[in-house]
Design a protein around this nucleic acid. Structure first.
Lengths: 214, 214
DNA sequence: CACGTACCGATGCGCTTGCATCGGAACCAT
DNA sequence: ATGGTTCCGATGCAAGCGCATCGGTACGTG
């Protein structure tokens, strides 16, 4: 058995080079040669790790998706003492990628989303990620709504609670996810300032609590 | 004075060819040769209309933006008899590009948004369009909120009206716009069905009326 | 210590891209 | 008619692309 290298590690290394390039010049500006140069490996090494360019991009997308998912999860375990409501707020803020240091991730994400519209493998990877996020957020919303409803119920002693439209946790999670994505996009193209997007997002969450409490 | 051709008309013709191609293969798949072929003109004609490819894409983006803006405006004047609230609902539905026949426009729009992140001219064109949309929606939201507040005020006779967080029309308009964009994106990549996105959007609007009426 | 195997980096190939060039066709004023 | 001007479509060109290939190198085993 001759020489052995850490293939998986190299794949991740290359994936991050892809991300850095996609951040700077967009996905169109990502070429095998530039990726190799940025990852400090030769072009042959890139080709041995991924049999085709699309496979490389797909892996890079999965890599970014994992990082984002990890960040949300990390944020949740980092602030467990607080209420489910604030946890949801933190998760939503995290997923919006509004902070300057995550702007690059946001650009990469948007580039991949646009590409996924015309690339079936990318779309599949993307859908898996969104499905996981939706599940996480649905759970968070459900917990937060229960908390608020309980608190309100204790105060009004189970008073007038006949919502015209019942709050569906999954629907609210979907709204939150879509809103976060839309805000991220609008910040990226410069239509909104990060602070403005943050305000909109938290106003939406505030409205959600208000409705939950009646 | 020798031969003269309708330059502006040809530019629009080419812009629509660009859109058809961007819909099918994404913006990366748009080449001068394919555009020329699709628009039934020679490559030289394309080059005479636009001095560079980026200028062509920028014009095409402006073209799409106009079409979308026009559709929203047309929808508004088509249903003037109804309340400001339903008008806002129609406009929001229209801007979400959820209907199958507008899916192509949505794909093109998303492709341009992604490209604008790394292209300053495209970003400028995009920002202009979003600014106009935000203004339109802010006005619609303000009118709708007034209507609802008046109606609620008449019933409760100016009763308990101390919103914890006052409804800012512009902020609500921004939320609506971002939500619509996010939902459109999620439909495009197949994460949500059009019907599901429609439900989320109208649930959001419903919540807005509920809050406005207290 | 030497052998064979698995990896590496460089180079080549065919193709496509955006853009520049140019001879000829089409038009309007004279 | 006719001349001059404007437009057109084909072709050329250099650069860059993804991918395939191949001799050399370094490693782990017998």
């Amino acid at each position: 058995m001759p020489k052995h290298v850490d293939h998986e590690g190299r794949r991740r290394l290359i994936a991050e080079a892809v991300c850095r390039l996609a951040d700077e010049r967009g996905l169109e500006g990502v070429t095998l040669r530039d990726v190799a140069a940025r990852a400090q490996v030769s072009m042959g090494a890139v080709q041995r790790c991924f049999s085709t360019k699309e496979e490389m991009l797909d892996f890079a997308l999965g890599h970014v998706g994992e990082r984002i998912g990890e960040r949300v999860r990390a944020r949740l375990v980092r602030s467990p003492a607080q209420s489910a409501g604030t946890a949801l707020g933190h998760a939503a803020t995290e997923i919006s990628l509004l902070r300057e240091e995550h702007r690059a991730q946001a650009r990469v994400w948007l580039a991949f989303v646009a590409q996924a519209v015309v690339s079936e493998p990318l779309a599949a990877t993307l859908k898996t990620n969104y499905a996981a996020l939706e599940q996480t957020f649905t759970r968070l919303v459900a917990e937060a709504l229960e908390d608020v409803a309980d608190a309100a119920g204790a105060v009004t002693e189970a008073g007038d609670r006949a919502a015209a439209e019942p709050l569906d946790p999954r629907r609210e999670a979907r709204a939150l996810l879509a809103l976060a994505d839309g805000l991220t996009t609008h910040v990226l193209i410069g239509h909104l300032a990060p602070q403005e997007a943050h305000d909109v997002l938290h106003a939406h969450l505030g409205a959600l609590w208000e409705r939950a409490a009646h």
